[in-house]
Amino acid sequence: MVEVSRKPKGFVTINQERCKGCGFCVEFCPTNVLQLSQEYNSHGYHYPIAQAPEKCSGCDQCGAYCPDFAVLGSRNNNKK
């Protein structure tokens, strides 16, 4: 029997309050997971949200670009 993973490959963790809304993570996500929110954080910045979380590969390109240490991409552990 082949077990098919039902989990996505990865997920993004976002610390909204640290974000300054530069948009680097949105622009450079290879799978276009993110977009800037309509909402503001308490500093008045539009933070990123995962508008297509199912596409996340967990490559952490978003996290690598973030100048504010506010975003982290992680891989799901699919091993059983």
């Binding site: 989990k7 996505p8 490959k9 610390n15 979380p53 596409k55 996340c56 590969s57």
Partner: peptide, 19 residues
């Protein structure tokens, strides 16, 4: 404030990250 977004299953291929 930390928000976790756990994604649904996907078949999409990772695009090559830049260079």
């Amino acid at each position: 404030m930390t928000e976790s977004c756990v994604a649904e299953p996907t078949n999409s291929v990772i695009e090559e990250s830049p260079t």
